[in-house]
Amino acid sequence: MKFAVIVFPGSNCDIDCYKAVEAIGQPVDYVWHTATDLSDYDAILLPGGFSYGDYLRCGAIAQFAPVMGEVVKAAEAGKLVLGICNGFQVLTESGLLPGKLMRNRNLKFLCHQSELEVMSNKTPFTNQYSEGEVINIPIAHGEGNYYCDEETLAKLEANGQIVFRYANGGNPNGSLRDIAGICNERGNVLGMMPHPERAMDQLLGSEDGKRMFTSILNAWREKNGAAVNG
């Protein structure tokens, strides 16, 4: 399985994502935002950071990068796309996921460990977790307050597209219904504000993020006839 880590001007979690893929023993490339071909890749990671300086809105300029046309094509073809933090913002701005990310409720940048409840383990990104499990994944964002209209929220709930919620009353940013991560209807595009790539080893406080990457690998291998356990 081959991964691409998209790098925008202002990305700063690209190395973390690269190292996370290395940790599960899979090939991975950095791909610059001007790229116009992602056909060699099975999974695409949009990392955290401050793409294009977060001018206008977070992710608002990145949606026009040449590579995003290819990300859309990859998503439409059923390839796996994971947007983390700023990557989640880019996915909503580009229309691959519904809703928007607004300023945190307290208008402050937040950087600390957070507890997430796994709402669904039926996605390619969460098949190595248990439904209802509480995991420890760090956050680092100033605009993580997820919002959508009531109709969209009802669809997310009905379709099981809310993949992660902040657990145990620990909503750090005012996000609607404690939403920390959502997927598209097809389930192959996931956006989340917390950083699983920073929770790959207990030495860093948690290794709960590693199972997201082994889930992706497991889903790909099952699809291609060679399942693996995390």
Results as ranks from 00 to 15, higher is better:
Ala154His: 10
Ser120Phe: 10
Tyr146Val: 01
Asn159Met: 12
Ile135Phe: 00
Lys122Ile: 02
Ser130Val: 06
Ile137Trp: 11
Gln161Thr: 05
Pro124Glu: 13
Lys155His: 12
Ser120Asp: 12
Gly142Glu: 08
Met119Cys: 14
Ala154Met: 07
Ile139Gln: 02
Tyr147Cys: 11
His141Leu: 05
Ala140Pro: 07
Glu150Asp: 15
Asn127Glu: 12
His141Pro: 08
Ile162Asn: 13
Asn127Val: 11
Ala154Cys: 03
Cys148Met: 08
Met119Thr: 05
Gly144Ser: 11
Pro138Arg: 08
Tyr147Ile: 07
Ala140His: 08
Glu131Asn: 09
Lys155Gln: 14
Phe125Ala: 04
Ala154Phe: 05
Thr126Tyr: 00
Gln161Cys: 12
Gly132Thr: 02
Ile135Gly: 01
Pro138Cys: 09
Asn136Trp: 15
Glu150Gln: 15
Gly160Lys: 07
Ser120Ile: 14
Thr126Cys: 02
Val134Ala: 06
Ser120Cys: 13
Ser130His: 11
Gly132Asp: 02
Glu151Arg: 12
Ala140Ser: 13
Pro124His: 10
Glu150Leu: 14
Asn145Gln: 11
Cys148Trp: 04
Gly144Gln: 04
Tyr146Glu: 02
Ala158Ile: 01
Glu150Val: 13
Glu117His: 03
Leu153Val: 04
Asn121Val: 00
Leu156Arg: 02
Asn121Met: 03
Ser130Cys: 08
Glu133Gln: 11
Thr123Tyr: 00
Tyr147Leu: 14
Ile162Trp: 11
Ile137Asp: 08
His141Ala: 03
Gly144Leu: 05
Tyr146Arg: 01
Asn145Glu: 10
Asn127Ile: 10
Phe125Met: 07
Cys148Arg: 05
Asn145Ser: 10
Lys155Phe: 10
Gln161Gly: 05
Gln161His: 08
Tyr147Lys: 15
Tyr147Val: 12
Asn159Gly: 15
Asp149Tyr: 11
Tyr146Met: 01
Ala140Lys: 09
Ile135Asn: 01
Ile139Pro: 01
Ser120Leu: 09
Ser120Gln: 10
Pro124Ile: 07
Gln161Glu: 12
Leu153Gln: 05
Gln161Pro: 07
Phe125Val: 06
Glu157Ser: 12
Gly132Trp: 00
Asn145Asp: 14
Gly144Met: 02
Asp149Gly: 06
Phe125His: 06
Val118Gly: 02
Gly142Tyr: 09
Met119His: 00
Asn127His: 08
Ser120His: 11
Asn121Trp: 03
Glu151Cys: 04
Gly144Lys: 09
Asn159Cys: 13
Val134Ser: 04
Cys148Pro: 00
Ile137Lys: 10
Tyr147Trp: 12
Ile139Val: 15
Pro138Asn: 08
Phe125Asp: 04
Glu151Ala: 15
Glu151Lys: 14
Glu117Asp: 05
Ala158Glu: 06
Pro138Gln: 07
Glu143Ser: 07
Gln161Phe: 10
Leu156Ser: 01
Lys122Met: 06
Leu116Gln: 12
Pro124Gln: 10
Ile162Ser: 10
Ile139Glu: 08
Ala154Glu: 15
Asp149Leu: 09
Tyr129Trp: 06
Val134Pro: 02
Leu116Phe: 08
Val118Tyr: 00
Val118Pro: 00
Glu143Ile: 04
Ala140Ile: 09
Ile162Cys: 09
Lys155Val: 13
Glu133Ala: 00
Leu116Gly: 09
Lys122Gly: 12
Leu153Ile: 01
Glu143Trp: 14
Asn145Trp: 10
Thr123Ile: 04
Ala140Cys: 11
Ala154Tyr: 08
Asn145Thr: 06
